[in-house]
Design a protein around this nucleic acid. Structure first.
Length: 402
DNA sequence: AGTCCACAGGAAGGGCAGGCGA
DNA sequence: TCGCCTGCCCTTCCTGTGGACT
């Protein structure tokens, strides 16, 4: 048999008519002209922020809603419009967007301030300066710019959970020391109870306005997907039922439009690779694929010790139906470490790592009491067992375990 | 009602790497 | 080179906890 060369493959690929007309319409970076079912939220946010165009500091705003409900899209859309107008009319306005979930970028007080100071051209090292000094740098740069700044802190709950709420208090207090500028904060959070956990002094200095985004229902999701599908795919390249199925899947997951769009994109890519039109079967395959991609991505980013702990958990659970407990996982982990010459952490630290694996969804760990036999975590796998076994094999190879 | 177990999880601090200015 | 600052990972020490057992 003559082997097909990569050259032939690419030739064929270029000749073939693609399912996609504009695949970008199904990506996160795509910015639609209008945002369906979010008129109220757009108007409310625009009303709150509008004073900035007259150089009056607007109220701080908190935006709540489940993932994929259009929060970030709406905020970016409103601020784009404001920036267009401010450029046209020479209004001194600047918006800065920071995602507090981005590790090593904006996930600590120091890093956020350093990023902000850099936005104004100040050269701040990634570590080394006292936080106070970075505050001073940012203050003076901001004041010198004589601009009104709207600071968007996306996933603000992640920041506060990690670093406490002091940073929010300090950011709101900056205004007191500014002569020529001011700063307003737009906080975006997936956690609707986020503000309840803030200290009263922070709450009073921060939360002046709130906008709440409710989840999309299946009908709304379908219409959103319909619009994107028309932009993304060529005519007759997909089955009408595909969009409905993607919408239904996403509606089950608290109306997450982001997930629905990703599902449609992956289903399209799978169909394209199979040289077929996009039908319902590819949506099922895409759902499985997305699930696996998420898990693999999480595992790839785990530290060595977290991988060791996860491997120990899979090893214990793979051959039984009953859950595991912290103590036995620690024992198994210790043996694994000593067998492989790896430094063993304390049980205290292991407990934290189990908590982290739980919050990542890799395992389900519930605290239970076994009465006289103590209090512990009851641990089950958060992923499919067969898939966990495959992961355990790949971890074994990755870590070169004996 | 008191005891006991097997942890959970908070607080404090050590050690390290990376960066700065003197 | 040294002292000082940061973030990060980790340990040690400690108190708290829920329910079975006595």
């Amino acid at each position: 048999m003559i082997q097909k060369s990569a050259f032939d493959f690419f030739e064929e690929y270029l000749e073939k008519k693609s399912l996609f007309k504009n695949a970008d319409a199904l990506t996160l970076k795509f910015n639609p002209e209008s945002i369906s079912y979010r008129d109220q939220e757009v108007n409310l946010l625009a009303q709150i922020l509008a004073p900035a165009l007259k150089n009056i500091k607007p109220s701080n705003v908190f935006i709540y809603g489940k993932p994929g409900t259009g929060k970030t899209l709406v905020v970016k859309n409103v601020l784009n419009s404001m920036e267009q107008i401010s450029t046209q009319r020479n209004i001194q306005l600047k918006s800065i967007y920071l995602n507090c979930k981005l590790q090593n970028v904006a996930d600590t007080e120091y890093r956020i301030l350093a990023q902000l100071a850099r936005e104004f051209g100040r050269d701040i090292p990634s570590t080394g300066l006292p936080t106070n000094e970075v505050y001073n740098e940012f203050n003076s740069a901001l004041d010198a710019s004589a601009k009104l700044v709207i600071l968007i802190l996306d996933e603000i709950d992640v920041l506060v959970n990690k670093c406490g709420d002091n940073i929010l208090y300090n950011l709101t207090r900056i205004n007191e020391s500014l002569k020529n500028s001011s700063i307003a904060i737009v906080g975006i959070s997936n956690d609707i109870n986020f503000k309840n956990n803030l200290e009263p002094r922070v709450k009073s200095s921060l939360g002046e306005e709130e906008v709440i985004f409710s989840p999309y229902d299946a009908v709304q999701l379908k219409e959103i997907l319909d619009q994107r599908a028309i932009l993304a795919f060529n005519e007759n390249s997909y089955d009408e039922l595909v969009v409905a199925k993607c919408a239904a899947y996403a509606a089950q997951q608290h109306g997450d439009a982001r997930r629905a769009i990703a599902l449609l994109r992956v289903a399209g890519e799978l169909a394209e690779r199979s040289n077929k039109t996009l039908t319902e079967e590819f949506v099922d395959l895409a759902e499985k694929q997305l699930e696996k991609d998420t898990v693999m991505e999480v595992i790839k980013n785990l530290t060595l010790q977290s991988k060791m702990v996860f491997y120990s958990i899979i090893s214990i659970l793979k051959n039984r139906v009953t859950p595991a407990f912290t103590g036995e996982i620690f024992e198994s982990y210790k043996k694994l470490c000593s067998k492989n010459g790896i430094d063993c952490l304390t049980q205290r630290r292991l407990s934290d790592l189990i908590g982290e694996l739980d919050s990542l969804g890799m395992i389900n760990a519930d605290i239970i009491s076994k009465g006289r036999y103590g209090r512990t975590r009851e641990i089950n796998l958060g992923i499919d067992k067969d898939y966990a076994n495959k992961i355990s094999i790949s971890l074994c190879e990755d870590l070169d375990l004996k």
